[in-house]
């Protein structure tokens, strides 16, 4: 993280010791997700709250049990398991049965994080692996989207399609039709009045959280901006139905899990590159893969898989963009390998 007074920046080692602790960052990130939680619960009712709580509890519990069983130092309350559970909960549809968040949290914490060596050693974002596991295992349960309770537009059924689902299946005209008019569509998307995962719908709430994180300098603009920029560029060029350069980037930015993914998941310290220029490449890759899946893939949404795929490349990116050693002389190409 940045040490605010001295203006030092995050980079590969050597590091300078700071008063910030992992716990503090974890709890701050959790706090920054509070608006999204509140909006999710407001729109999807107490059921959504229970899903989130079940997810958090099982994440913390499985971390505790695993560490106890392995006779390691029990650090289950350092906030990282809490955050993983919270992110997983926010990435679930509101009305999933309770065993879903439990299984997801176990996969996320034990298989993705602890089996790889615990916090800091995991290759993939735990919450996203948990969700990917669930999506592939329970495709039907994981794609039941509840209509927001607060008087959604004229859809009679209790379940609905996500805007991205409608966009993929029936096109943008149908989407505008469902929401009334274009202005209404944008404003509804902005406050989160739409079908989707609990925490991904309210763009406004997510932006508030992201602003808080940026203000505290827990995340920098590199990954989110590169991610969102690439998505809007590709959406603008290829997203339209009437040919090139007719797409609607705003629509793609405000639907799906993009905001949640770009600000809260892709910026995970452990699984993203720590070199700034590498982060831009990482974000661009995420954006490209997201749009590839959204426009050409089988799933309507690709943020999760995009981030997971780019996670694999993080170590490679870090190596490729390693900052220059101070005072080092550039070696001839032959000796560069060492």
């Amino acid at each position: 993280m940045k040490s605010e007074k001295s203006g030092l920046i995050v980079s590969v080692s050597p590091h300078i010791k700071d008063t910030e602790t992992t716990e503090r960052i974890m709890w701050s990130v959790s706090l920054s997700l509070l608006p999204a939680v509140l909006m999710g619960v407001y729109f999807f009712g107490p059921r959504a709250a229970f899903t989130i709580i079940a997810s958090i509890l099982s994440a913390v519990l499985s971390e505790y049990i695993f560490l106890k069983a392995m006779k390691k130092k029990v650090v289950a309350l350092d906030g990282s398991a809490f955050l993983t559970g919270l992110l997983l909960g926010l990435n679930l549809p509101p009305s999933v049965p309770f065993f879903i968040p439990v299984i997801g949290a176990i996969v996320a914490v034990i298989i993705t994080k602890q089996l790889f060596g615990g916090l800091g050693y995991n290759i993939f974002n735990p919450a996203l692996i948990g969700r990917a596991f669930l999506l592939v295992s329970f495709p039907r349960l994981m794609t039941v989207w509840n209509e927001p309770a607060a008087a959604f537009i004229h859809l009679d059924a209790r379940t609905t399609a996500t805007p991205l689902g409608i966009l993929k299946e029936e096109g943008v005209i149908k989407l505008i039709e469902v929401f009334g008019d274009k202005g209404n569509l944008y404003s509804q998307l902005l406050i989160g009045h739409r079908g989707g995962c609990i925490g991904e719908t309210s763009i406004l709430a997510l932006l508030i959280g992201a602003t808080f994180l940026m203000y505290k300098k827990y995340i920098t603009w590199h990954i989110p901006l590169a991610f969102l920029g690439t998505v809007s560029l590709i959406a603008w060029i290829f997203g339209g139905q009437e040919g090139l350069f007719t797409g609607d980037p705003l629509l793609h930015l405000m639907t799906g899990g993009l905001m949640l993914g770009a600000f809260f998941m892709a910026t995970d310290y452990v699984t993203s590159p720590s070199v700034k220029s590498g982060q831009i490449l990482f974000g661009t890759g995420c954006g490209f893969l997201t749009m590839l899946i959204r426009l050409k893939g089988g799933y309507p949404e690709g943020v999760m898989f995009a981030i997971l795929i780019m996670n694999c490349f993080s170590p490679l990116i870090d190596r490729g963009f390693r900052s220059k050693v101070f005072g080092a002389v550039k070696k001839p190409a032959k000796g560069a390998k060492q």
Partner: peptide
């Protein structure tokens, strides 16, 4: 119960966990 296990990704999970 766990559809993922018959898919290739699940194969890795199963082999890894059983190996452990």
């Amino acid at each position: 119960p766990l559809l993922i296990l018959v898919l290739p990704a699940g194969g890795f999970f199963a082999v890894g966990l059983l190996m452990g």
